[in-house]
Amino acid sequence: MQRTQTAVSMLPYLSFCEVGKKYGTFTAVDNVSIDIAQGEFVALLGPSGCGKTTLLRSVAGLVAPTSGDILLCGKSLLAVPVESRDIGMVFQSYALFPHMTVAENVAFGLQMRRLPKADIAGRVAEALALVRMDPFGERFPGQLSGGQQQRVALARALVTRPRVLLLDEPLAALDAKLREAMQFELRQLQQQLGITTVFVTHDQQEALAMADRVAVMNAGRVEQFDTPRVMYDEPATPFVAEFIGQMNQWQARLVERGRDGARLACATGEIEVCKVHADVPVGGGVAVMVRPEKMEVRAQNGQAATGNAVCGHLKGVMFSGEKTFCYVETPLGLMTTVMQNRVTGADLGLASGDDVVVTWRPEDTVAFPSA
């Protein structure tokens, strides 16, 4: 089972080809096409009801697509029985058998494949050691913590040496600190084994931290499929921009489009941006978005705002340990800025009621056509 992943091949290994799923008149998955490389860790991210779990379960054979195809190594999975798909899956509830010991739970899939007892014992021991649960083989699930149960479920999925590992929000039941620790452990294990993994989550930070690429889903469709960094800094749609992290947002109008950027007119004057969607004509309306950590706030000191800046009134300052949040009322609406206390220190020299200026850079500004 020990194999090291040094690089992810970008050739398609698991492919969704125009996959659709309907339940009566309701469309759960709508014409999804994405390619996943061998050894890649992909997150399906989106709000409840967006189709991510339906898409995941269709790979396992637990859901039959209404249309399209799913290919593994270039061959369709649709006619392959569930038990023959060579897929490992970890459910949100872990789905461990309470009347079986840890070792018996892990061995179950191998027993169904009728492997020799000696082989089963060796592979169970190997799988439990891999997830650091080898001292707990004789315990029952009810005697384990949530994190330990998660490890056992993972060992049970890996012991059959599947070609693809499916994870359906397996960390959702854990507390915040344990969840963060398990994110790191799970990602390290996936890289160590080099196993192609598809992970369903509704937690944006979890997806960004763990995945090689993220598919953001909305109403059954994939709105963007990209690396976490590109998706965060260059969202393809307003939905992605707002769903991934936070955004300050206001309305403006396109004044001029140039080679290196564009000028927009808003309620407080003109601002510069580096990119405006190609569909926006000069004079057309745009929704302007800037992330809170891309903005800076300082005392106004009687100075007028120039460039990408807006004057405002500081409504509140919230210290949260590693970060400080400032909430500023401006003519463009309420704006939030976030600063790392490692850089700024906890004392910003600002207090509620102060007149302040909020500034940001053109390259940190995203502009989409107004809805």
Rank of each mutant, 00 (worst) to 15 (best):
G312E: 01
V124M: 03
A64G: 02
N308Y: 09
G284Y: 11
F16Q: 01
A176F: 05
T324G: 05
E180P: 02
L56R: 03
L144P: 02
R113M: 09
K117F: 04
F368R: 11
V230C: 06
L350A: 12
A172P: 06
E104F: 02
L144Q: 00
Y327H: 10
Y94P: 04
F136N: 04
T344R: 12
F16P: 04
E40W: 03
Q303H: 14
R187M: 03
D233S: 12
G245N: 08
P238A: 13
L128E: 01
L154H: 04
A215K: 04
N105C: 02
V282T: 14
R139G: 06
G321W: 04
G51Y: 01
S58D: 00
L208N: 05
T306L: 12
D279K: 12
Q246H: 11
V82A: 00
T227A: 09
A107N: 07
M112H: 05
Q111K: 15
P228V: 07
L189E: 03
D203A: 05
G220F: 07
A262I: 10
C50I: 02
R3E: 09
L128P: 04
E363F: 12
T197E: 03
P141A: 06
A241F: 06
R132G: 07
K177M: 11
H313C: 13
P362G: 06
H277Y: 04
D347Q: 04
F108P: 02
L186G: 02
R123G: 08
D86K: 10
A181F: 01
G307V: 12
F319D: 04
K21H: 13
Q249H: 10
L171P: 11
V42G: 07
V286I: 07
S84Y: 00
Q246T: 15
E363S: 15
G302V: 13
E293V: 08
G258K: 10
L167D: 03
L78G: 04
G49K: 02
G194N: 07
E272R: 14
T6G: 13
H313L: 13
E242D: 14
S33A: 03
T27I: 10
V273H: 05
R156P: 08
D355I: 10
A371N: 12
S370W: 12
G302Q: 11
A121I: 06
Q183K: 09
Q251S: 14
K21P: 06
A37C: 09
E138Q: 14
N301K: 15
L254H: 04
M289F: 07
G46A: 11
L144A: 06
C311E: 05
L334Y: 01
F199I: 09
V356S: 06
Q249T: 15
V106C: 05
D119F: 00
M247I: 14
M231I: 15
S352T: 12
K22E: 10
F41A: 10
Q183E: 03
C311S: 15
T306H: 11
T66K: 08
Q191D: 13
V200I: 08
P170D: 08
D355H: 14
T4I: 10
F140S: 12
Y13F: 12
D119N: 07
L77K: 01
Q143V: 08
L254I: 10
R57N: 00
R132C: 13
R229M: 09
V82H: 00
V198R: 00
